[in-house]
Amino acid sequence: MTAAQAPGQQAFVTLNGNLKTEAWWVIADFQPFTTEVRGIPASQIRKSWCKATEFRKDLIPKELMFENGADAMKGAGMSFAIEGRFDGGATKQIAVVGVFQECAGQKGRFMLVLDQPDGEKPRIRFVDAVRTNRQFAALSKGKGGKLVLWGCMECDGYSVLKWDRKKNRFGWEPQAEEP
């Protein structure tokens, strides 16, 4: 078992399994310790949430993030946060992933797309949250500026999010082709 300590907090990441036989992101258990994401209170993201912590590389032990001295996520073209104009508009947006904990105790992973208007507080544009014991998530950019949400670093477990101009909202694409 390995643990990463967030400053003044319980371990953010614990591993429940054997790193010799399983990938770290499969056996990782994350403990959210913050009550807001990018200045937005967890309870404003979802009413049932008491904690939500955005994944950041500095919260995860370097020995997990780096393989043979190389950044494994960067090598896979993945990140925990990606900036862009995902709806094609003028306002910059950021997509982030992390772990939440409901006030009743259940945990899961989330993905947010936030508008980042200049000089203003970020505004929620899209929320996807799933209760799960496997909270790891990462992002990459797909074809045509689409966002790709991954549940692991070396697998086919992904979902593609795109802006639907007709419906004027984000939506998941059916998984038919490579991101």
Rank of each mutant, 00 (worst) to 15 (best):
I82D: 00
S48Y: 00
G144S: 12
G151L: 14
G108F: 04
G89A: 08
R109M: 08
W172P: 01
A23L: 14
T2V: 14
K166L: 10
K143I: 06
T91M: 08
K92C: 00
C103V: 12
L139F: 07
K146W: 00
A129N: 06
I60S: 03
A11H: 12
G69C: 00
I60A: 07
M73F: 15
T14I: 14
G8M: 07
N18P: 02
M78V: 01
K166P: 00
C50W: 01
W24S: 01
V127F: 07
F126N: 04
E22G: 01
A70W: 00
G69H: 01
R131H: 10
K62P: 01
S159C: 01
K121T: 15
G17H: 05
V26N: 11
I60N: 04
F55M: 10
G98H: 09
G8V: 03
I94D: 02
F136G: 02
D156P: 06
Q116N: 15
G144F: 05
K20A: 12
V13E: 07
E178G: 06
K74F: 03
E83C: 03
S79K: 15
A28H: 05
V127H: 07
V160D: 03
D156T: 14
L114A: 01
L15H: 11
A137I: 07
I27A: 01
F66W: 03
S79C: 09
G8L: 09
A104G: 13
T2F: 12
G69I: 04
G151S: 13
D115N: 14
W163V: 04
G84M: 12
E67P: 00
W49I: 06
E22Q: 11
Q175E: 02
A4P: 04
N18T: 09
T2N: 13
S43Y: 06
V96C: 12
I124Q: 11
M153G: 14
R125D: 08
A90Y: 01
E67D: 03
W49R: 08
K20W: 05
E67K: 07
I27D: 02
A23Q: 15
G108H: 03
V148N: 04
E36T: 11
V13N: 05
V97S: 07
S159L: 10
E154D: 13
R131Y: 00
G171R: 15
S48E: 14
R46W: 04
A137E: 05
L147R: 04
G39V: 10
P174G: 11
K20D: 11
R165H: 02
F110Q: 11
W150L: 03
D71W: 07
A76V: 01
P41D: 06
D29W: 06
C50D: 09
F12D: 03
F86E: 04
A176T: 14
D164H: 11
W172R: 02
M65R: 13
N168C: 02
G89D: 09
D164F: 05
Q9K: 15
K167T: 04
R56S: 09
A23G: 04
E120I: 02
T91C: 06
M111D: 08
F86L: 09
E102S: 15
V113A: 08
W163S: 02
P7N: 09
A137G: 13
A52C: 04
C103Y: 06
A4E: 09
I124L: 15
D164M: 06
T35F: 02
T21D: 12
G75E: 13
G119W: 10
